[in-house]
């Protein structure tokens, strides 16, 4: 009977130590995520995060300040149209 009591005490101690440790460990991990990772995220934002958090930024790079389409895009479209017309003409 004493042996059982002893085992219950051991199990109780194990439970207390175990739960305190699990909470402490994962608690420190929360601090780690909130400090180190959060700072890293601000310093090194990646390509996926930028458009979703600031959707206007990406479209700005493709258009000029007043909302017109940028010259590079215009050039690409004109090139494609010209090639299409040429090919179209040859077909006829």
């Amino acid at each position: 009977m004493d042996n059982m009591q002893q085992q219950f005490i051991e199990a109780g101690t194990l439970m207390l130590t175990g739960m305190v440790f699990v909470f402490a460990f994962l608690g420190v991990l929360i601090v780690f995520i909130n400090t180190v990772l959060a700072k890293l995220a601000v310093k090194f934002p990646d390509a996926i995060a930028v458009p979703s958090s600031r959707p206007n930024k990406k479209s700005k790079s493709k258009s000029t300040a007043n909302g017109d389409i940028s010259p590079a895009v215009v050039a690409a479209i004109s090139g494609a149209v010209k090639r299409y017309r040429t090919q179209h003409g040859h077909d006829k």
Binding site: I33, A41, F44, P45, A49, S53
Partner: peptide
Amino acid sequence: LRPVTKIE
């Protein structure tokens, strides 16, 4: 949820 960056 907020988007999570690659570095994180």
